[in-house]
Computed example of a mutant assay.
Amino acid sequence: MTGRDALRAAVGAGVAALERELTALSHRLHASPETAWEEEKAARWTASLLDDLGYAVTPGVCELPTAFAATVGSGPLHVALCAEYDALPGLGHACGHNIIAASAVGAAAGLAKVADDLGLTVTVLGTPAEEGGGGKILMLERGAFEGVDVAMMVHPGPVDVAEAEPFAVAHLNVRYTGRAAHAAAYPEQGRNAADAFTVAQVGIGLLRQQLPQTTRVHGLVTRGGEAPNAIPERTEGRWYVRAGSLEELEKVQGRVEACFRAGALASGCALEIEPESPPYSEFRNDAELAALYRRNAESLGRRFAAPGDPAARMNRASTDMGNVSRVVRALHPYIGIDSLPAVNHQREFAAACATPAADAALLVGAQALALTAADLAVGNLAAANAAGDATARDTP
């Protein structure tokens, strides 16, 4: 057995040894979904398993109660594994973050005993609030990724895709304030905050024809009024604006916000627009990481979707991992869980995230991530040794 074969065997054995615990964690998270910033049990359960693996766990990092950092090894190449675990409001784990968290722990298990031999420092970051809250952006701003060379994670989807191509996105809270009045007796005394949204949505609908094809605008009214016989005094909504890049997003967002201002002007209502989080960036793929991951995943029996496959479009979904990719080398592939025709953000997909196919995918995803980190470390060591030999030869 070659050195590389022995290494792959050790990594695989590390993941396999924790198979029961990893699937149990995934199912436990799936059965107890917690939404953005509320992932108290998820963070605790995930960190506890890492503690059992010998990782040094620090809870509540970056002044975020449901974030954590867990580290093992002291090598010069620092790899961060990102564990997402927030669920969707009303839909539970319909984006499979239970699988993401379990895969990150599995990759950590594969690397735990070989990290120092490979010259690795491995940190698992518990990253809350990916679904609109921008947890990774706050952690990035507060130093969680400082000193990290590579950040990686694997995301479930209908099929396997090696590279992420997400939209940049702005998450907006929109509020109109008008004046209540009896809708039959004194309608002229009211200022209809529901009408303001109607005007804004008509404007956005008409605007779509003039927007670039790389944009998306969508949202919903979360509060539409209190009673049918009262002019709505206050309405609220959540809206997302997506574009191919942060630069394009800034231009499109300005035009969308003009539609909301038109609603305020037409109805005589006051308007407030507040961001839910900083904008999410497009993702900058690292070609070497993507190629290493694909090679490792294929060696484990995975097959990647053909270019243009409609089922592969989950890789366009926005993620705060995009902001991380602007600062460090990053990897964000997708692993299929045999869910079709169900796709992400559907109740049927949530059900598919706790099946034998999903369990198998999380184990393969964990192993592929760990092997990718190991391959990168081996290449790093080889380059360092070659540089040392060259220096020795050049020294008189």
Results as ranks from 00 to 15, higher is better:
E165M: 14
E163N: 11
M152V: 01
Y240V: 12
D149L: 04
F167G: 02
V221M: 12
A144R: 10
G133C: 12
D149P: 03
E165G: 13
R175F: 02
E163G: 01
T127L: 06
E188V: 00
D195I: 10
M139N: 06
T222K: 06
G157W: 03
P228W: 13
D160Q: 08
E233R: 11
A183P: 02
P128H: 13
A162V: 12
G205D: 09
R242P: 00
T215D: 07
V202I: 11
G132N: 11
V148S: 03
A181F: 14
L206T: 14
G133T: 05
R208M: 00
V174T: 13
G157F: 04
G157L: 05
G205F: 03
G147P: 11
Q209Y: 04
H155F: 04
A151D: 08
F145S: 01
V169A: 15
L207Y: 10
E248P: 01
A164L: 14
A144F: 02
G134H: 05
S245H: 08
Q201A: 10
A196F: 04
P232I: 03
A183Q: 00
D160K: 13
E188N: 09
A193M: 10
I204E: 02
V169C: 15
T214I: 04
P158G: 06
A200Q: 11
V154I: 12
G244L: 09
A164H: 13
L140I: 06
A164D: 12
G132L: 06
G134F: 00
L207C: 10
A194H: 05
V148Q: 00
I231W: 00
E236D: 15
G132A: 09
R234Q: 12
Q213N: 09
V202W: 07
Y176N: 01
L206I: 12
E248T: 01
H182N: 06
A193R: 02
E146F: 01
G237F: 08
L211K: 03
P156Q: 05
H171Y: 15
L249D: 01
L206F: 07
P228A: 15
L220T: 09
I231P: 06
D149A: 15
T121I: 00
N229G: 15
P156R: 04
L211E: 02
P212W: 12
P158L: 05
R191Q: 13
P232K: 03
V241W: 07
L138I: 12
Q201F: 08
R191C: 03
K136E: 04
G143L: 05
P187Q: 08
F145T: 05
V150G: 03
G178N: 09
G143M: 00
T198Y: 12
R179H: 14
R216H: 08
G134R: 02
E163K: 13
V154S: 00
M139V: 11
G224L: 13
Y240D: 06
W239Q: 00
V169L: 14
T222S: 13
V161N: 08
P158E: 07
R208S: 02
N192Y: 05
T123Y: 01
I231E: 00
E165Y: 12
E248V: 07
R223C: 02
G133K: 06
W239Y: 15
P128R: 09
R216Y: 07
G147N: 11
E247F: 06
V217T: 07
M139G: 03
P187I: 08
V148C: 02
A196D: 06
P212C: 07
P228F: 11
L246W: 09
